[in-house]
Design a protein around this nucleic acid. Structure first.
Length: 106
DNA sequence: AGAGCACTGATCC
DNA sequence: GGATCAGTGCTCT
């Protein structure tokens, strides 16, 4: 499958552990303005644990959603995961966001 | 062929 | 400052 989705997954696997990126950055890296579709694609995530979709957050530092839910235990688990990777999250937002933000080379 | 979607920026109070 | 509106592009049914 050589679709747009695969490119997203590929970029995601390029993100090293302990770093995060944003839907916007992904969209920009792929030259795509439909930021929503990035999340939609990730929600499908046929590549499951291969693609660290929990490392993708919103542009303002909040985590956005996870597993199709906005406010559930899944989101809390995402926080826990990121925290264990060295990312500080407080009140549902990344504290050291600018420090762990992985910028794609365009 | 059509609707959905884990977002974002701009606009409106 | 916070809330709302509109735009956006690919995937799935």
């Amino acid at each position: 499958m050589t679709s747009f989705a695969e490119k997203v997954y590929r970029l995601l696997t390029n993100v090293p552990p302990g770093y995060v990126t944003t839907y916007k950055e992904l969209g920009r890296a792929l030259n795509c303005r439909g930021y929503r579709l990035i999340g939609q694609i990730l929600s499908k995530n046929p590549y499951a644990p291969l693609v660290p979709c929990h490392r993708v957050v919103k542009s303002d530092g909040s985590l956005g959603g996870f597993k199709g839910s906005y406010d559930s235990k899944d989101t809390q688990e995402k926080v826990k995961l990121l925290t264990s990777e060295g990312i500080i999250i407080k009140n549902g937002k990344v504290v050291n966001f600018s420090k762990v933000f992985y910028k794609f080379q365009i």
